[in-house]
Design a protein around this nucleic acid. Structure first.
Lengths: 271, 271
DNA sequence: CAGTGTGAATATTTTCACAGCA
DNA sequence: TGCTGTGAAAATATTCACACTG
């Protein structure tokens, strides 16, 4: 029941904007560092600098949580650590399973920051029988046959998928069926999940591609900063080798009429 | 020269909104999959579904690139793959160095999607002399003493930092000094870089914390979906054990006046 | 009087809805 | 007729600037 009531309202939580939620962990980390150095208070300016944002944004963000500062002074570090932790739900600890103990899964299992704040690696799961029982980062790998049992027994609600893309969806389905409602996906695939399940994605090559885009822009900026509205690259479009289907007459036809900035490419034309 | 001219305008590139740039890799991946299955054309609806976004957004995104579709038909897959690749700068290939070959660095080195589209691992670099020469994912690790030489010789402009947080900033500084202008940072630290250098961050524990936030909300939603505007958790604030500094009289003082939603915590009070 | 908290202004992103074209 | 391309509206997010307060 309760599947798909509203369209997808779960994104926006209470009053706190999603963009703010995404920054809270950042503030928390900066605050934790201050706390370890026994710094009693910080101003929004200082904290913002440590977190890499600007102070107006930080103050606005905090204003959604409540009025936790002291005018003319700043914020009490310990107090704020507590408040943000609570807001993020880190005062309880969350058992997490990692599925797919390859290179990446092993790296995740050994990641210190994982265990440190609020999260506990409840189990490592892999489909390879050769891995079963082998300890990784001190935790024995369990076979994926036991996935459902593990999740239920430990009350796991957060799953991390570090499998190859090909099996990510089916792993996801099993996790969800077993009761997991939040998934962190490292596999380069779009996962489809029912309403009420949150998925966050971490994708290497996407990040690199975004960097490449900006990198390319910088390269094109060498001459004439103002007038440099030239296209990324005038490289010619390589003929698309339409194998089998759609060879004659259809598709790849009327591309001449595009009105993109410029950098026109020769219209497609099968040899 | 050219350091810090404008405040930081580099974020917004040409006409293409940043949010759109961030989705282009997603579209590209979906299109590549279609291309491999020799699908000649897709509608915005189909492609959007494959990429996990809605079709209006996708069409709007594509409209920034130019008019690459055919009304009544859809988009030519090959043609669009080419256009997006070009826009992202993937028609050239980018040599990348990975610094810090621990668990994570090794995982990154072996990540297939890395090499596949436009990126080439030019070098693996680690500070540990015991690693030097050891092949990881088929590539011999080089010592960090050679970092500057490697970057210059290979013309590397993208660096990946997978070191412990403690040394990330100094690695970053060396990369930048040697000519790297885009950095993908896996270390849980805020890097500070000069103007003109792009940093993207991938952070495990931040992602988990965001999931935890939403997870917590779900848990609190059990009864009374409407009226459930209750605070995350009424857990009491643990007295902050102000060691040494600021023990008496100051800080942690006037917290009673906060006007946060509710869930008041007992004011701090040293025993 | 230094520094928070926040309305108001601005900028960006998403969504709608439909004109226009193949 | 079906689907793109896009103005315009709505929703979000960021930034400004300043009243207010400890």
């Amino acid at each position: 029941m309760a599947t798909g009531r509203t369209h997808r309202p779960a994104t926006r939580s209470r009053g706190i904007p999603e963009a703010t939620v995404a920054r809270l962990p950042l503030y928390l980390r900066a605050l934790t560092a201050l706390s370890e150095r026994s710094v009693p208070t910080v101003s929004s300016e200082e904290l913002a600098a440590a977190a890499g944002v600007n102070s107006a944004k930080l103050r606005k963000d905090f204003s959604y949580l409540g009025s936790y500062g002291t005018r003319g002074v700043g914020y009490d570090v310990e107090y704020l650590v507590y408040q943000i932790s609570r807001e993020l739900g880190l005062t309880q600890d969350w058992p997490v399973v990692i599925v797919g103990i390859g290179n990446l899964g092993a790296a995740l299992a050994g990641y210190g920051g994982f265990a440190s704040r609020g999260f506990r690696v409840a189990a490592l799961i892999d489909a390879d029988p050769a891995m079963t029982g082998k300890p990784v980062a001190g935790i024995p790998v369990q076979h994926s046959d036991d996935l459902e049992r593990i999740i239920e027994e430990d009350g796991v609600s957060i799953g991390v998928i570090a499998t190859p893309a090909g099996v990510a969806q089916q792993v996801c389905d099993r996790l969800v069926a077993a009761g997991v409602t939040s998934i962190l996906n490292f596999a380069p695939t779009v996962l489809s999940v029912p309403d009420g399940v949150d998925v966050r994605k971490v994708d290497l090559s996407i990040e690199l591609q975004i960097l490449a885009f900006h990198e390319q822009r910088k390269a094109g900026e060498e001459a004439g900063a103002e007038s440099a509205v030239l296209p990324p690259a005038p490289a010619p479009y390589q003929a698309p080798e339409t194998d089998a289907a759609s060879a004659s007459g259809d598709a790849a036809g009327g591309k001449g009429g595009r009105k993109g900035p410029d950098g026109d490419v020769p219209a497609v034309m099968p040899a």
